[in-house]
């Protein structure tokens, strides 16, 4: 075991992948740069503090090591000047750091006017961005060099919207709106994580934030807006991700046990339920399972289903499209 680790992993760690991503993620905004400069300052100060404390300790430990059992030690009970010194100096540094952090935090929390507003909904376990023209998307696409304001909400539990490359994070709290803003300075794709524990697939609640040019962004918005004109199967496939079905029902990863796979489901006879009954997976079964997920729970996923009920959340057209798509997964 150990030799295997050393051979295969340690080498990889030391020379290979450790370089794949450096110490901190890409600085994709001005805020990220200012956070990093404060962080560098903190690192240097901390290093100095550690050198004083740990270095002092090691130096004293060596210099005053016990030489004989009858060593005489100095009787130094206190030194008021010294003690005031090492109370006041840290205090001054701490307050300086506090003020610096506050200034940047204030910038983070002050929403710019004239920003492009996007609604972002965090739900178990996917992110959905809703644009002003009605486009819904799992991947967040934003134009570069433009203030973006995200209005965050959650229908179920607390999530947290986190983009490491922008150094921003905001909890998404059910029952209220929270918001955050950023201005991407570089184009590219960045990770979006959920940082607040939200259940089974918390660690799967990852998506991409794609920063593109203004022209590409406008083009993308128009293309996406037309998606309801797509053929039902295509439209259903899209809905399957934006309505977060895809975060639990995988097509091709049978090992994952969040929700049953849709692969080859349609038309299945003797489909076994948790209470021992069997059903035939026809359109009506799919319809019922989507709208009222607790009605029939598949064996191995019970006793209660983890799936939210979609009653009242889907139009008839959307529902049919999703069912058409499920029928197409063979």
């Amino acid at each position: 075991m150990l030799s295997w680790i050393i051979k295969n992993q340690l080498a990889e760690v030391l020379i290979g992948r450790a370089n794949a991503q450096s110490f901190m993620p890409t600085q994709a905004s001005e805020i990220a740069k200012s956070v990093d400069s404060l962080y560098s300052f903190l690192l240097i100060i901390s290093l100095i503090a550690c050198v004083i404390v740990i270095g002092g300790m090691i130096y004293f430990a060596y210099k005053y090591r016990r030489r004989s059992a009858n060593d005489k030690t100095a009787y130094i009970s206190h030194d008021t000047r010294l003690e005031i010194l090492w109370s006041v100096i840290p205090l001054v540094i701490f307050l300086f750091v506090f003020a610096w952090g506050w200034i940047i935090y204030h910038d983070m929390r002050t929403m710019p006017k004239e920003a492009l507003e996007i609604q972002v909904i965090g739900r178990q376990w996917a992110w959905v961005a809703e644009y002003k023209n009605g486009v819904q998307s799992n991947v967040l696409v934003v134009p570069v060099k433009r203030d973006i304001r995200l209005v965050l909400s959650s229908p179920d539990v607390i999530h947290s919207f986190y983009v490491p490359s922008f150094r921003i994070k905001q909890d998404v709290v059910p029952g209220r709106y929270t918001s955050l803003w950023f201005r991407a300075e570089v184009m590219g794709e960045f990770h979006v994580f959920c940082a607040e524990f939200c259940g089974t697939s918390h660690s799967g609640m990852i998506t991409k934030l794609r920063v593109v040019s203004q022209t590409d962004f406008d083009k993308w918005l128009i293309e996406e807006a037309d998606s309801s004109l797509l053929p039902p199967v295509e439209y259903g496939k899209k809905l399957f991700t934006t309505k977060t079905c895809a975060s639990c029902h995988f097509e091709d990863q049978p090992g994952v046990k969040i929700g049953p796979t849709m692969k080859g489901l349609f038309g299945l006879e003797n489909h076994e339920m948790v209470d021992g009954t069997t059903v035939t997976a026809d359109e009506n079964y799919l319809r019922e399972s989507i709208l009222a997920s607790q009605a029939k729970v598949v064996k191995g996923f019970g006793p209660r289903s983890a799936m939210p009920a979609f009653q009242g959340q889907l139009s008839e057209k959307e529902l049919s499209a999703i069912i058409e798509y499920i029928k197409s997964i063979k």
């Binding site: 404390v53 005489k72 100095a74 003690e83 090492w86 840290p90 506090f98 506050w102």
Partner: peptide
């Protein structure tokens, strides 16, 4: 944040005092 910084001070005092206690001691490992 401000108040949290204040907690740092008594903690720092303790750290420095411990190290200072070792000064001119007879340290047994």
């Amino acid at each position: 944040s401000f108040l949290t910084m204040l907690v740092g001070v008594p903690t720092a005092i303790k750290m420095f005092n411990w190290v200072a206690t070792m000064y001119k001691g007879s340290i047994e490992f």
